[in-house]
Design a protein around this nucleic acid. Structure first.
Length: 501
RNA sequence: AGCGGGGUGGGCUAGCCAGGUCUAUGCCGCAGGGCUCAUAACCCUGAGAUCGGUCGUUCAAAUCGACCCCCCGCUACCA
């Protein structure tokens, strides 16, 4: 029987600057979801990448004193390094300047045109030559561009439009009648917006930009960045006849930040409908990371560099904090103080400490050999812990199915507290209680598996310390609920897994 | 400005929809004590909130209604 497939994407990032904490957060969340799906046995394809065709890049490159291509390559590399540095398990990394993407981007545009959904029109507005951008009233200060101090000029130019209006009914139906957008709050926002203002046709080409993908039948126009960017989700799979496309499309989850919900929930489905391509299953909208309650902002200096964090903290410490402290569907605040407190208090103090004390107890009291239990069925405390071991993967599965990755992780933390309490009650350092140690060592195994999506390398360390064969994924998620470590099994010499900061 | 969500001890948060048992929950942090196998876990005690404000409904409101203040999100045709 073929395995169920699971295709997850992140948004692709603009390369006009280096990655910040927000970029990392989205990748970590996607990684956790991807890894969890692998653990439950799905055939996962996890995509991330960079959006490199924006006109903004031209400007940013100029300011950096580099050729556009060099500038983009440099920054894109940085995003790839980010993935490696933080143990992100993406299966591919798409760059929209790659040929495999450009040709699909053009193909999609052509298809939309052939289906009668692209027509020529004109766009007009206030244009600032300095910025090479159209401006709105609110962009201006005293009628002038705040950056260049010049008055923008009213101009009109020819461009192509996408008949977005044609898909209003279908898109609204898609959103209203399905769990297409998660969470509900974001769904309601989109419904409200469609109902109040409807869908207007969208200008999908630009003729004033030098950097971008040419409209295939009219190369002086460039394809509008958003249309181009969205296409990455299928171009990376080799649309229209790549094996991966056939296998993995439609996407199960497009993970995005709340700021780009409209593009993913409305424009993207309309494009796909126009081309007759199946629609993705879910648009999953996470919250933002804030610093002192404020949005990350370069100008305010709050755009934290993830690489800087690694100079002080371990990868898994950062991952733990992001997954645990930021409520997945809402904004959450980042501070080093909060990170240190969370890691020291919970990851080290509860989870790490429990692991360490049970393993050293077995090491010291039983020379590293798991003792033979007897009649623990008659012990209330033992049966309660056993029940929790069995239940943990189930309760976490429920959370994961609702993408509540922060709440799922809290279950692990709560479990470790219970384990510590159990150990305290049994006092095996006095009693050598074999039942307690037998159950606890199995609880450690439960932790190794349930932490696997969040803290892949720490999980592996625990696994090795338990001296188990293979890796957690060889046994699968549900195995976390089993007493798979048998009496007589020898563990390795205990070492500290989570260090105090 | 329109629509939507929210304001609970230092921080986050439960409770509100189905009003009384809320003299308001849990976690973190803080003060003190117990215990000590362990990277001080676990247990106990304590300080700290009149539940944004005002008015009302009611025998009774954090919980219902009105108005006000503040915060946030989406939108304001962001090329």
């Amino acid at each position: 029987m073929p395995r169920e497939k699971f295709y997850i994407t992140t948004a692709i990032d603009y390369v006009n600057a280096y990655p910040h904490l927000g970029h990392l957060y989205e990748k970590v969340c996607a990684d956790i979801i991807a890894r969890w799906n692998r653990l439950i046995g799905r055939d996962v394809f996890f995509l991330t990448g960079t959006d490199e065709n924006a006109a903004k890049n031209e400007k940013a490159a100029r300011e950096a004193g580099l050729e556009v291509k060099d500038f983009i390559d440099r920054n894109a590399k940085r995003f790839q390094e980010l993935c490696r540095a933080f143990n992100i398990s993406n299966d591919d990394f798409i760059r929209t300047t790659e040929e495999r993407h450009r040709k699909v981007s053009q193909l999609i545009f052509k298809k939309m045109f052939e289906n009668g959904d692209i027509y020529k029109g004109s766009y007009s507005g206030l244009y600032c030559y300095g910025c090479e951008e159209y401006k709105t009233e609110k962009d201006l200060v005293d009628g002038k561009c705040p950056e260049h101090g010049t008055e923008p000029e009213y101009i009109e130019e020819e461009c192509y439009f996408f008949r977005l209006s044609k898909y209003e009914k279908q898109v609204l139906e898609l959103i209203e009648q399905n769990q297409f957008i998660i969470p509900e709050k974001r769904k309601q926002e989109m419904i409200a917006r469609i109902k109040s203002e409807g869908l207007r046709d969208l200008a999908v080409s630009r003729s004033r930009v030098g950097w971008g993908v040419e409209v295939p039948f009219d190369p002086k126009h460039k394809i509008y960045v958003w249309v181009d960017a969205l296409v990455n989700y299928i171009s990376a799979l080799g649309y229209p006849d790549g094996e991966k496309y056939k296998k993995y499309w439609p996407a199960d989850v497009h993970l995005i930040g709340k700021g780009i919900n409209w593009f993913h929930s409305v424009i993207w489905p309309a494009i796909l409908l126009s081309c007759g391509i199946p629609l993705p299953k879910h648009i999953l909208v996470h919250g933002y990371i804030t610093i002192g309650g404020e949005k990350l902002s370069k100008s305010k200096g709050t755009a934290i560099d993830p690489f800087k964090l690694l100079e002080k903290y371990e990868v898994d410490a950062v991952r733990y904090f992001l997954a645990r402290d930021i409520p997945f569907f809402e904004d959450g605040d980042f501070s080093e103080k909060a990170l240190v407190e969370r890691v020291n208090g919970e990851l080290v103090g509860n989870i790490g400490n429990f692991i360490h004390r049970t393993l050293t107890l077995i090491w010291n009291l039983y020379n590293g050999e798991v003792p033979e239990p007897h009649d623990y069925e008659n012990d209330r405390d033992c049966m309660r812990l056993l029940e929790s071991i069995k239940m943990l993967p189930n309760t976490m599965r429920e959370k994961f199915e609702n993408y509540e990755i922060d709440k799922a992780l809290k279950e692990v933390a709560d479990f470790s507290i219970q384990c510590n309490r159990f150990l305290q009650a049994k006092e095996p350092w006095k009693t050598k209680d074999p039942n307690a140690l037998f159950l606890c060592v199995n609880a450690v195994r439960t932790l190794a598996i349930t932490l696997r999506p969040y803290l892949p390398s720490s999980s592996e360390k625990i696994w090795k310390m338990l001296n188990l064969d293979g890796l957690p994924e060889d046994y699968g998620w549900d195995s976390a609920g089993e007493l798979a470590i048998k009496p007589g099994h020898r563990i390795s010499k205990p070492e500290i897994v989570f260090k105090k900061i």
